[in-house]
Computed example of a mutant assay.
Amino acid sequence: MEAKKIFITGATGNIGKSLIKYLLEQEGTDQIIAGVRNVERARGQFPTHERLTFRAFDFEDQTTFNALKEVDRVFLLRPPHLADVDRYFKPLIDAFQQNQINQVAFLSVQGVEKSKVIPHHKIEKLIVESGLEYIFVRPSYFMQNLTTTLYEELKTHGTITLPAGNAVFNWVDIENIGEASAILLSNFEQYKNRPFEITGGENLSFSEVVSMINQEIDTQLKYRSVNPFKFFLLKKQQGTAVPFIMVMIMLHFLPRFQSAPKCSDAYTLLSKKLPTTIREFAKREQQLLRP
């Protein structure tokens, strides 16, 4: 099979790092190109590997889109602060086509087909309408939100404050997403033009998750539910950007009015492994989860 050049956006984030790790572990000759804003800094975050190279790339600077030259397929990950699809993603899709890139795997989100207000829905629609061959990776709620997006409050105060009430979320480990995405990317022809929901095996509320973590690593985390207006004011006072606050509200408030998410077996079918459980995650990440 002819070697492909696979371009990874978001390469230095949690999912990007996990994806690259699993791509490089696979046997094969595919070349992995990490698209990053700072090449020198990024090199220091990855082990040296003959199949991994770096190119300067920035979603907000179209002059860097020349990094897409001689690329066969792209893993597209939306930076959380970029919500304007027409401004940032339409020119990027145009750049794919100008560079004869016909295959894109997009990191979307579970339930995107029912949530027309989120940017992922518009990006999926843009990709389909462009005629590109695609794979939509639709993960559920990241376990690593506890150690990234929600981490500052957890670490400082031992609390998690959200407008989520008792809504249940399906919790998935980013390591499972990275592994599944690597398999899909490396076997694009086999899986193309289909969505894949990558989920964990547990539907749990934040109260249940906090209780499990406390039991597993003997800590005293607390979960506090507030209404969306109060949440907005709290985050605004902390200096969080308004578009990001609105995304947080949509992700955590809307599930209160939706049915429980489905548990998919896609990860197990692809990897022949069971997904990570919350208790396993808590044990693995206990250093971070202790306030």
Rank of each mutant, 00 (worst) to 15 (best):
P79E: 08
K116G: 10
Q286W: 07
K222L: 12
T276L: 07
N166C: 09
S271R: 03
L254P: 06
L288T: 06
G158V: 02
G165H: 04
A105M: 14
K21E: 14
F231N: 08
L184F: 00
S18R: 04
W171D: 06
V117Y: 11
E280W: 06
N102I: 08
Q237I: 10
F136H: 01
A260D: 15
I101T: 01
Q100R: 14
A167H: 03
Y267F: 15
V128Q: 13
Q97T: 10
L92S: 02
E216Q: 15
D84C: 06
T148K: 04
F142D: 05
Q287M: 10
I177F: 03
E197K: 09
F7Q: 04
N227I: 08
P47C: 07
D30N: 15
T9L: 05
L76E: 05
E2W: 05
G178C: 03
I177C: 07
H49E: 11
A34E: 06
L68H: 02
L221M: 01
K17A: 05
L92I: 01
K262V: 11
T161N: 07
N176D: 15
R284M: 10
E285I: 00
I174W: 02
Q100P: 09
A241N: 12
K236V: 09
S225A: 15
V112E: 06
F244M: 15
Q287W: 10
Q97N: 13
S205Q: 02
N99A: 05
F244S: 13
D86A: 11
E197N: 15
K283G: 08
S108Y: 01
K21R: 14
R279E: 14
K222F: 08
L132W: 05
A260G: 10
G13N: 06
V104K: 01
H121A: 09
P255L: 03
E197T: 11
R78K: 15
N145W: 03
Y88I: 00
I101V: 04
Q100E: 15
P291A: 12
M1I: 10
T147Q: 04
A241L: 13
P243L: 02
S115E: 12
L132P: 03
H121Q: 09
N166A: 12
N99Y: 04
T147Y: 03
S259W: 09
V128C: 09
M143I: 05
F229W: 12
K230L: 14
F188P: 05
G16M: 02
P91R: 04
Y191L: 06
L288Q: 15
I15R: 08
L162R: 00
I213M: 00
E113K: 12
N176I: 01
L150W: 13
M1Q: 11
I15K: 09
Q258R: 14
L288C: 08
F206S: 06
R224E: 13
V74E: 07
Q287K: 14
A42R: 00
Y22W: 05
S181M: 01
R55H: 11
E124A: 05
A56K: 15
G158K: 03
I15V: 14
F57R: 02
L254S: 10
K155M: 11
F54I: 00
F229E: 12
F281A: 07
Q97D: 10
F231S: 08
N227F: 09
R224H: 13
Q110E: 12
R256E: 11
I93G: 01
F57V: 01
R51P: 07
T147I: 09
G16S: 04
R43T: 09
